[in-house]
């Protein structure tokens, strides 16, 4: 279950292909005179990290959080606000961003995990909107207009700097790989088994003596932290944070990326983010009414491609 299968599997081959594309883009894109794609792919990878984090609780844990983008905002604003006050060291910014994301996830999780189903979805949405409105009302930090991140996180070394586009890109790439690796380890550990079992049959887990709440809460916090890291990377990449980062629509898009790529598959969310963002990019290039095409496409995927792209490719493999 959920482990890396052999490379013969088309889903895994697709994964490998996407990884290779990610890995060589900073070298290849300028050579092809398409440097623009370095930024595009960096963005995709940041969303990929966020989607991987959501997949931990949604795909493996069955917890449909409709407020997950809030942690993007929290990670991003922590960096933005600290930079605003002149604190630019990554060694202060990043642990703080992680800490605040984790703390918010702990509080939000502790509240929302007492509910189930639709109520869980609504409460995660409501709590996230609370932070959204907080950022809108924060005049000092730009309200609606957002906040320019005055300086990128300073890693304090001379040979590697986020001001360098390639360094920034590979930093994000490294975090993406790390997030998938951590998911892989978690999902197959005792902890992950407990989370997956609770998704499969919560009452049964209770009746063999495991109180599921604290495991779910822990997963919720881990996912919040992982998404907070995506947020701090996004702030550095864009040089800008705004309430829009944690708008409920962003949370919806995250859910969609996970579903599109394949829930409870390790790399599915990354492929989902890749296809989702590339497609919206391409469609938006054709027509300003691109949502008219994009919307029905998403509906069709949900109806006909259960298990998302990963599911589609795996099924093809089974047939062969």
């Amino acid at each position: 279950m959920g482990a890396f299968g052999p490379l013969r599997n088309p889903a895994n081959m697709f994964t490998a292909l996407v990884l290779v594309i990610f890995a060589i883009t900073p070298i290849l894109a300028p050579a092809l005179d398409e440097s623009f794609y370095v930024i595009v792919f960096a963005r995709i990878m940041v969303w990929g990290i966020a989607a991987v984090s959501l997949n931990l609780i949604m795909g493996y844990g069955g917890l449909i959080s409709f407020g997950h983008a809030v942690y993007l905002g929290i990670g991003g604003y922590t960096v933005g606000i600290l930079a605003f006050h002149g604190v630019t060291s990554a060694w202060i910014q990043w642990p703080l961003a992680i800490g605040v994301s984790g703390l918010v996830a702990l509080v939000f999780g502790a509240i929302s995990l007492r509910t189930k189903g639709v109520y869980f979805i609504m409460i995660t949405l409501a709590l996230a909107q609370m932070i959204f409105f907080l950022s809108v009302s924060a005049e000092r930090y730009g309200s609606d207009d957002g906040l320019n991140v005055l300086a990128r996180s300073d890693l304090g070394v001379s040979f590697f700097s986020l001001n360098n586009k390639t360094d920034m890109y590979y930093t994000i790439f490294a975090f993406l790989l790390a997030s998938v690796f951590v998911s892989w380890k978690l999902v197959n550990s005792r902890f992950g088994t407990t989370i997956r079992a609770a998704k499969s049959n919560d009452t049964r887990v209770q009746s063999i003596g495991v109180a599921t709440y604290r495991y779910r809460l822990t997963a919720f916090v881990i996912a919040g932290i992982m998404c907070g890291i995506a947020g701090l990377l996004q702030a550095n990449l864009e040089g800008f944070v705004s309430p829009d980062m944690m708008n409920w629509q962003r949370s919806g898009e995250l859910i969609f990326m996970v579903v599109l790529g394949g829930m409870s598959t390790l790399f599915g969310p990354v492929t989902g983010a890749f296809v989702f963002l590339m497609l919206s990019e391409v469609l938006a290039g054709w027509t300003i009414h691109w949502h008219i095409i994009f919307g029905p496409f998403l509906v069709l995927v949900v109806i006909f491609a259960r298990g998302g792209i990963a599911g589609l490719l795996t099924r093809r493999a089974d047939r062969d």
Partner: peptide, 14 residues
């Protein structure tokens, strides 16, 4: 696993 105690073990594959 449930019988053996808590499952806050995050790394070793089952």
């Amino acid at each position: 696993q449930a019988r053996q105690g808590h499952s806050f073990r995050f790394w070793k594959p089952v």
